[in-house]
């Protein structure tokens, strides 16, 4: 872990949806961390005005790179710049990776249950990628709630993991608009219960999304009999 700000360079950008893109950042030295961690970005205007925001790491690309996925917020001050303006070769100040609580590594016991609301999928994707790369024998499920098919991040890669990794089940729930033949509507308690490992499997559960999403889903799971000590949450605000 690095405690001071260092300068990273944007080495690649990739659109995820119409309003979200992945930024690959290259560091001057080796950068390492664990799935679920985040970094702080500091942006400085010409006159010295600064803004600091936290973004979850989506992927680790050893030895010197990592990826973030940023979604543009309607009223955002920083995210529109990161999604629409920042270009390959630009520099950003970065602190981290940091955070030791909302993290998962393949040595953690128990089935892995990931539940994402919208862009809350980002840190969970880092966990899923780590699970796949380690060829983990631990069963894993991702329940990913999105507004519409156009809002799904990492579409191609999720399809590949879901089809090729026998330990992983990926379940995408659509709230506003769904592909043909798929149900559409707000995520319900019943749908969450049906998609998740049952309490007797003693899964470790990671929930990330808006505050409302996280509160609702965590309460349902505790209601279903999951031990609150095995549920870890991360709210991205809103």
């Amino acid at each position: 872990m690095r405690r001071s700000w260092q300068v990273a360079e944007v080495s690649a950008v990739r659109a995820e949806t119409a309003r979200a893109r992945t930024l690959r950042l290259r560091f001057p030295d080796m950068v390492a961390g664990v799935p679920g961690q985040h970094v702080d970005l500091r942006l400085t205007a010409d006159d010295g005005y600064q803004a600091v925001r936290s973004y979850s790491v989506a992927a680790w690309v050893p030895p010197r790179e990592l990826e973030l996925t940023v979604e543009e917020l309607d009223d955002g001050e920083v995210s529109p710049f990161l999604v629409d303006v920042l270009a390959v070769g630009d520099q950003l100040e970065v602190r981290g990776p940091v955070g030791g609580w909302f993290t998962w590594t393949p040595d953690r016991a128990g089935p892995l249950q990931l539940i994402a609301g919208g862009s809350g999928v980002v840190p969970l994707m880092a966990m899923l990628r780590s699970h796949s790369e380690a060829r983990s024998a631990v069963p894993a499920r991702l329940l990913y709630s999105v507004r519409s098919p156009d809002h799904v991040f990492y579409r191609g890669e999720l399809d590949v993991i879901g089809q090729e990794d026998p330990q992983v089940v990926i379940d995408i729930a659509y709230s506003r608009e769904a592909p043909d033949g798929r149900p559409v509507g707000r995520l319900t308690h019943e749908a969450v219960t049906a998609s998740c490992f049952p309490p007797e499997d003693e899964p470790v559960i990671y929930i990330c999304g808006s505050t409302g999403f996280v509160e609702a889903v965590a309460a349902w799971l505790v209601d279903d009999g999951h031990d609150a000590d095995r549920i870890r949450t991360e709210r991205y605000g809103g």
Partner: peptide, 16 residues
């Protein structure tokens, strides 16, 4: 020392 971020202005108008 902070490194300026190319093209970033922040959401604020000019100093008044």
């Amino acid at each position: 020392m902070a490194v300026p971020t190319s093209g970033f202005t922040g959401r604020r108008q000019n100093r008044d």
